[in-house]
């Protein structure tokens, strides 16, 4: 029993964090927003880091890593509000194809030459698909009508929900950081507003929500990787905890920014809109709450202190 994420496992995620913070800052989001919102150069950079092949087995030219590794990198994609469909293609579609022994396209996906964009009936849309365009509040999301052959496979749904939860953790972390930084520079009443307890306590609550969403997300990723029968419940728990943390982070961050937070000029809105989008994607709060409810109140899952890792 070990809930610690081994330091060497964090190294790749940290490298991705450094790479994205250096090459994918707010100025890039603004450039994408103003022009074509996909950039082959950004995609190529992700390919060169091996991320498109992260979950592709080594015999198909990938890195053969696990869902926890992918979740840790999805978190970094959230932190950077990455627009390219890396998570959907490499961390949601690839493990789903693998689960069905569909290995023909894996080498091309790992090489970045091909993308598989998952379409699931729970969403009612497809991200980065080819259908009739739909208009998302998030200017960096390209939604289109759900294709007729969309899947209703619960395993695909679990993968999408898990990776959304991981991205929401990163989005919330980024919004908290932005609010803290703004609170240090904005002065009112002759002092930085971050010196006022009302703001300290508001952002402390975000830190608490995040502290107790993160281990839920990593535990869910590990449970899915282990193929645990209870994994769907833990994925739902992760999706709820991460969504709640992200909405709290967004609402707290805009409040700390004051009227500036309500403008298009401040960067915050890119993260906030992604959080709204992913919060409802891959199963609504009601959907995931019902799965937890059925397991816990319905009695399908053993609960209590002796069953922490049931």
């Amino acid at each position: 029993m070990d809930m610690l994420i081994a330091p060497e496992r964090l190294e790749l995620a940290e490298a991705v964090r450094d790479y994205l913070s250096g090459t994918h800052g707010p100025e890039v989001l603004r450039r994408l927003d103003a022009g074509p919102n996909r950039d082959p150069a950004i995609w190529q950079g992700l390919v060169e880091m091996g991320l498109t092949g992260l979950l592709v087995p080594e015999e198909h030219e990938g890195l053969g890593m696990g869902l926890l590794d992918a979740a840790l990198i999805a978190r970094e994609c959230g932190r950077a509000a990455l627009a390219e469909p890396l998570v959907d293609s490499a961390f949601v579609a690839v493990p789903w194809l693998l689960a069905q022994d569909q290995t023909d396209d894996l080498a091309a996906i790992a090489a970045g030459e091909q993308r598989v964009l998952p379409a699931h009936t729970i969403n009612g849309w497809q991200a980065d698909g080819d259908g009739e365009a739909l208009d998302s509040v998030d200017p960096l999301r390209n939604l289109s009508a759900l294709p007729a052959d969309a899947s209703d496979d619960p395993h695909l749904l679990d993968l999408g929900a898990l990776m959304s939860a991981a991205q929401l953790v990163g989005l919330a972390e980024a919004m908290l950081d932005q609010a803290v930084e703004y609170s240090k520079i904005r002065e009112q009443f002759g002092q930085p507003v971050g010196g006022f307890q009302a703001l300290k306590h508001k952002l402390a609550d975000v830190a608490v929500a995040l502290e107790f969403a993160r281990p839920v997300a990593w535990r869910a990723a590990q449970a899915m990787d282990d193929g645990a029968a209870s994994a769907p419940v833990h994925v739902s728990h992760a999706k709820i905890a991460a969504t709640d943390a992200a909405f709290l982070a967004a609402e707290s961050a805009i409040q700390v920014h004051g009227a500036m937070g309500y403008t298009y000029e401040v960067d915050l809105h890119f993260w906030m809109k992604r959080a709204w989008a992913l919060g409802g994607a891959w199963g609504s709060r009601a959907f995931h709450l019902k799965r937890v409810d059925d397991a816990v109140i319905g009695g399908a899952l053993a609960i209590g202190p002796e069953h922490t890792f049931a």
Binding site: V180, K184, G195, Q197, K200, D205
Partner: peptide
Amino acid sequence: NEIQRNITAERLLGMPRVGAG
């Protein structure tokens, strides 16, 4: 918990320690 929120904001988040806050 008010003290804990101050500690969280100041020592974990790095928010400024000014005034009585």
